[in-house]
Write a protein that binds this DNA or RNA. Structure first.
Ligand code: MN
Ligand code: MN
Ligand code: ZN
Ligand code: ZN
Lengths: 142, 142
DNA sequence: TGACAAACGATAATGGTTATCGTTTAATAA
DNA sequence: TTATTAAACGATAACCATTATCGTTTGTCA
């Protein structure tokens, strides 16, 4: 990975922001230092940083809306490979215990647990996850 | 909310799917029963169902990529109003205890907790959350 | 210093989602 | 029933986030 000024400033922008910024947010901020920078450059570098493990994305499923009709409070098991989501009943997880204070004035509505990992088919050798037809179109936006 | 055949079939499609489907997934399935249905109709009804609480969306932040440079495992406090995300150190939450088996063959990589609620400014009266300039562009796609 | 792969800026293309608009239909009351 | 009307539908354009393309510039390394 070549060292470029743009790359440095983009990374610092994410580091300095305690805000979990979007690419657009980063772009806005970086333009303060490099007015000529392209939004495409921000996206390209963000992707590079994600690939090399310098940054990570907050949510596994930000690509497309995922819906459910199960209105009872419950948790999820998520495959980071094919983005499949399995339900986990609330009673299957012991209540989460908070050991510290939340941001001042924050009112908790609920608490959701995500167990993240790889499903059986995604662990299989090679292209095995293509064999499972029940896996819908694998929302991974790549 | 008027009762229409399309509405009925769309809702049943989500009910029958244990897959947390996308609007596109629902569209594909509903076309089996109503070949002439429009994708727009699926989106419109999904929105209606979300508004009336018949369906819910799996992830609060599916609209745009959110990034972070904090690579230490940690949890999040999320405001459902403005989508602000605050970090919560891993040590601030007692380890999650699983009381049941996961889907067969699933390999856990990590476990993430989301405390969901309303931040101080979103709880304030009226348009108060607009006053806080540190809140970045409020990714809410409406 | 020179050669070359990598990265850049500009911009077109894609994919998911929302908006618009003319037509059809469900709900309601005569 | 039938007439009225607001709501919902299908088709399609518009929009926004993201990715791809391409000609130019720049970092790397011999
Ligand atoms: Mn679920
Ligand atoms: Mn974080
Ligand atoms: Zn999988
Ligand atoms: Zn808020």
């Amino acid at each position: 990975m070549a060292f470029t000024f743009q790359r440095q400033v983009i990374y610092e922008a994410v580091l300095d922001s305690r805000q979990h910024p979007t690419p657009e947010n980063i772009y806005e901020q970086v333009r303060g230092r490099i007015p000529s920078i392209s939004l495409g450059t921000v996206y390209k570098n963000v992707k590079t940083f994600l690939d090399t493990g310098l940054l990570k994305e907050v949510s596994l499923h930000h690509g497309s809306l995922r819906l459910e009709a199960n209105m009872t409070p419950h948790h999820h098991v998520v495959c980071s490979g094919c983005k499949a989501i399995f339900d986990l009943e609330e009673s299957d997880v012991a209540p989460v215990e908070l050991k510290s204070r939340l941001p001042k004035g924050f009112a908790i509505a609920r608490c959701s647990v995500e167990i993240i990992g790889l499903c059986a088919s995604c662990r299989g050798i090679g292209a095995s996850n293509k064999k499972i037809s029940t896996h819908h179109s694998s929302g991974a936006r790549k």
